[in-house]
Simulated assay, not measured.
Amino acid sequence: MAKFKKGQSFKNQRVHVVGVFDQTGKGMNGKNVSFSISNDTREGDDIFTDPMLVYDTYVDKLGKQQNSFTANYSARQWEAIEAAANKDGDELVIEADLFMNKNGPGLLVNTNTLKTPEIPFNQQKHKANTLAAREAKKAAVAEQRAEQETQTEGEKELSV
């Protein structure tokens, strides 16, 4: 799930539709939607390394655990998403307020406060920014571990 920094707002977040599937249960007519924070217009520390709004698992028909990134939206909510989306880019993109899902994992899009962003979604830039941020995060963690090991070795030498 997209992890927000302390004090970072859930409001006015640029998100794009990664996938959308019809709900197939009896009496269901909505959509299962996968949303991701859009990193295509973000820079520096503002880039999310894990941008999906939902990370969940389910057991498939063969009994194997699978990953799921979807949340349930009603037909009316999906219509609002489609109406507000900028459709000119690689994926549908909206500006939305997000909130914690009380009935499951992850974040949901508030379909009552949607805005249409002017800039279309650019998948190539999103991917490049996301991968670069992950590499930077990995390097920072490795550097921090190396510093801790050096400090621990120094403490051992002093105690001898």
Rank of each mutant, 00 (worst) to 15 (best):
N12G: 12
G154P: 05
D56S: 14
D56V: 02
G106W: 04
N129C: 08
T130K: 15
D45Q: 08
F121T: 00
V160C: 03
I81Q: 08
T111K: 02
V33K: 05
L158Y: 09
V160I: 11
N112W: 00
K31G: 05
F21V: 15
R145W: 14
F21P: 07
N101H: 01
K115Q: 09
Q77L: 04
R42V: 02
E82L: 10
F99R: 11
A84Q: 04
T49E: 11
T57G: 04
Q148D: 06
V141N: 10
K3C: 10
T111I: 08
A142G: 06
S74R: 00
Y58V: 05
Q151A: 15
K6F: 13
Q148T: 05
A140Y: 09
D50A: 07
R145C: 06
N67A: 12
Q123V: 01
E155S: 12
Q151G: 07
G25H: 11
K61R: 12
N112D: 13
L108Q: 12
S36N: 14
N122K: 07
Q123T: 03
D22K: 15
K138N: 09
N29V: 03
G19P: 12
D40S: 08
D56Q: 06
Q66I: 03
G25C: 09
H126N: 11
G30Q: 04
G106F: 04
N122V: 06
E91F: 01
F4Y: 07
D22C: 10
E147T: 07
A132T: 12
Y58L: 08
H16N: 14
Q144L: 10
P51H: 02
T152Q: 13
P120N: 00
F121Q: 03
T116W: 01
R14Q: 08
E91L: 08
L131G: 00
R134L: 11
F10A: 13
H16D: 09
L62I: 00
K125D: 00
E118C: 05
D40V: 02
L92E: 03
D88P: 07
S36K: 04
N103Q: 08
F48T: 00
A84E: 00
A84F: 05
Q8R: 14
D45H: 06
Q65V: 15
N86R: 05
A83K: 15
Q151K: 15
N101D: 07
F4R: 09
K6W: 12
D40T: 03
N112S: 13
T130Q: 13
E147A: 15
N86H: 09
F121S: 01
N72M: 06
D40P: 07
K138C: 05
N32C: 12
M28Q: 15
E155D: 11
A75R: 15
E91I: 01
V17K: 06
V109W: 08
A85P: 07
D56R: 08
F69W: 05
A132I: 05
S159N: 14
Q144K: 15
D40E: 03
V15C: 12
S74I: 07
G19D: 15
A140E: 13
T70M: 04
A139G: 02
T57Y: 11
T111N: 01
E82N: 13
D50K: 12
K61E: 12
Q151V: 07
T111R: 01
V18T: 13
V54M: 06
W78I: 03
A2N: 08
I119K: 09
N122M: 02
R134F: 07
R76N: 10
S34A: 13
D40L: 01
Y73E: 01
S36I: 04
N103D: 11
E157G: 01
A75S: 14
